[in-house]
């Protein structure tokens, strides 16, 4: 299970919990509660990029040769990409499988 490093004591917190480093939320891997993951079938994929556009967590990312692949650090398994894919190229599979 992905885990974050938020183990600091209360005295170490910055004033009002302010974050001074832009983009630091990348360090927070949000994909640990996923129960399903998307599998892209490149045989069916037409590289339209709708999965990339619709993914609410920017977890579907451009890959080699114009395809798209999932970044499991952040994918929450919502299935939106599979639902929106016009070519039915994405299948959701249970994490345990």
């Amino acid at each position: 299970m992905a885990k974050i490093d938020a183990i600091m004591g209360w005295k170490e917190l910055d004033l009002g919990c302010v974050i001074r480093q832009p983009g630091s939320s990348r360090a927070f891997k949000t994909g640990d509660w996923r129960s399903q993951r998307p599998i892209v079938d490149r045989e069916k994929c037409n590289k339209c990029g709708l999965c990339w556009i619709y993914c609410p967590d920017l977890a579907m990312v451009p890959a080699e040769e114009g395809y798209y692949k999932v970044n499991l650090d952040y994918c929450k398994g919502c299935g939106i990409c599979a639902k929106e894919c016009p070519k039915d190229a994405i299948t959701m599979v249970l994490e345990e499988d």
Binding site: I4, A6, K11, L15, G16, C17, V18, I19, P22
Partner: peptide, 30 residues
């Protein structure tokens, strides 16, 4: 000490996940 300033970007008023909420409350109370 810290403020919203485009020359020195910061994020304020963020989510306090369970790992941080208690510590944040303690800090304000202190």
């Amino acid at each position: 000490k810290v403020r919203l300033d485009p020359r020195k970007p910061v994020s304020m008023g963020l989510v306090g996940i369970p790992e941080i909420y208690t510590e944040a409350k303690k800090a304000t109370n202190e």
